[in-house]
């Protein structure tokens, strides 16, 4: 087995090795292509993460609201729908089925649809974590908020959510890393991200092992970077004595 890493420096049209490994004048090398594919992977993942966090926090919170039967039902339905359908199937629903029902969606690019699909899929999982985080808090905290005359909004804003978020940061870290890995399904709707690059470039160059190793490396770097960021946040927001419910002792 001979390694051939030089293929990354080859031009994607005529496959001649380029000086300095980067293409010029609009020509691109496989290395250029891989870096741009990495950019797409990171963009899809980060945008989907923003959407997933926003939707997940809202849905997860309304599932714990007292005295709002319909809001809770809506939240439950949201989670079950997006959690119970395989991600790839959801992508196809967004790409092929939704535009068939709403013709206006036809002009929406695959990129946006993947962000929606991946974001909503992950929002269901984050909603579950937010809900469990809130429900893991001792009931006394909610009562304490009520006792000092807080409205429901104030109770959540100042008492429940700050505590719940601190509890759920570890599982949330896994979820943010999962988004990077799940973003590989975007290749199915023609987003030129890392997985599509790998499948296409290995066919063109016949150097599948080098390409998959390089792509794997980039996935690891991306997922690990987000892991470090989340760990940093976890450390920064830690309140001594309140890190985990178990450490805090039962009330």
């Amino acid at each position: 087995m001979a390694w051939d890493w030089q293929m990354f420096c080859e031009d994607t049209l005529d496959r001649t090795v380029r000086e300095g490994c980067f293409g010029t004048d609009g020509d691109i090398t496989y290395l250029d292509w891989m870096l741009s594919a990495w950019g797409w992977t990171v963009s899809v993942s980060l945008l989907a993460l923003v959407l997933a966090l926003a939707a997940g926090v809202v849905i997860g919170t309304i599932r714990t609201l007292p005295d709002s039967k319909w809001a809770v039902r809506f939240g439950n339905a949201w989670v079950e729908v997006f959690r119970n359908i395989p991600l790839l199937v959801q992508i196809f629903l967004w790409y092929h089925v939704v535009p068939a029902i709403f013709p206006a969606m036809k002009s929406v690019s695959g990129f946006v649809l993947v962000v929606l699909a991946l974001g909503f899929f992950t929002s269901a999982r984050i909603a579950e974590q937010v809900r469990s985080g809130i429900q893991a808090l001792p009931r006394g905290q909610r009562y304490a908020g009520m006792a000092v005359g807080f409205t429901t909004w104030q109770t959540y804003r100042h008492v429940l959510l700050p505590n719940a978020f601190r509890i759920i940061i570890p599982p949330l870290t896994s979820e943010t890393m999962n988004i990077f890995k799940n973003s590989s399904v975007a290749f199915a709707v023609s987003v030129t991200e890392l997985t599509m690059f790998a499948m296409q470039a290995q066919e063109e160059t016949g150097r599948g092992i080098e390409i998959y190793l390089a792509v794997t490396g980039l996935y690891i770097v991306s997922a690990f970077a987000i892991n470090r960021i989340m760990t940093f946040i976890e450390k920064r927001v830690r309140v001594p004595g309140l890190t985990a419910p178990s450490a805090a002792g039962g009330h």
């Binding site: 049209l13 023609s190 499948m199 066919e203």
Partner: peptide, 25 residues
């Protein structure tokens, strides 16, 4: 995706000097 046609299209685009949007199933 994963066929030689993707590369072929890229080459034809350049050779014929035309512009089209390619999407990959």
């Amino acid at each position: 995706t994963g066929t030689t046609s993707v590369q072929l299209l890229r080459q034809n685009k350049r050779a014929a000097g035309i512009k089209f949007k390619d999407i990959n199933g």
